[in-house]
Write a protein that binds this DNA or RNA. Sequence first.
DNA 1: CGGAATCCTATCGGATACTG
DNA 2: CAGTATCCGATAGGATTCCG
Lengths: 129, 129
Amino acid sequence: MAHQTETHAWDPELVPSAAGRTARPEPDCPVEVALAAVAGRWTTLVLRELMRGPHSFGELREGLPQISAKVLTERLHTLRERGLVEQHRLPGFPVRTRYTLTPAGRALRPLLVELYRTGSVLAGHEPRA
Amino acid sequence: MAHQTETHAWDPELVPSAAGRTARPEPDCPVEVALAAVAGRWTTLVLRELMRGPHSFGELREGLPQISAKVLTERLHTLRERGLVEQHRLPGFPVRTRYTLTPAGRALRPLLVELYRTGSVLAGHEPRA
DNA sequence: CGGAATCCTATCGGATACTG
DNA sequence: CAGTATCCGATAGGATTCCG
């Protein structure tokens, strides 16, 4: 037995590494990192569209007709800052852009699937799991 | 082939049911339901503590020394409203309370595990998955 | 001990109008 | 087409103080 002041016996499934044993919402806690990635209104819907493949700014607005240009721009900026989305400007006129998920962005897929599954369970529409 | 105006070919893994085929952040979309359950600063930490077993109000504050009474109260109220947590007042003086997860609350465990895993991947501390 | 009541600031997100 | 700029109302959440 070590000489630690053990207040907690950490559940190894829930908190498998030291990064999660925080007393506050630390930005580098894995749970916070993942939550930050999908945080904000419309974010998961933008990700859902991009999971289908590359989209232009206008195509994203077609898929999500009620999102404002401001919020969409904001979400895309944040996703790019986090390395989840890439922007490519296509040459020519009028200007065309192409937003694609990065490998890190595609890594969010299992989380989105799990969010859907858990939400279904909570709502009582349990799929079958 | 049906006579639908199919704009999307929905990914059956990502959007397995009609409830997820929304053009806006609908509150009854399963993803929104799950996000709502863990939304808000401190919420996942409160859930982490309760996953260990029942806690009193003060015990929760001991585990999370920096949370204010106001925010903790608020989180517990919201979690109770959503049917994820139950409160029991113990008789005697001074007053004692006991917060426990409901079955629905315990159903959040796989989501928390997945959040941790995804966050670890994004941060580059990939566990092994 | 276990909260409720106030107050106050920061950020979020929607609407609208304008630009390269 | 693909954004930017500005304004503005609504919450979120932290600090502090008080109550049963």
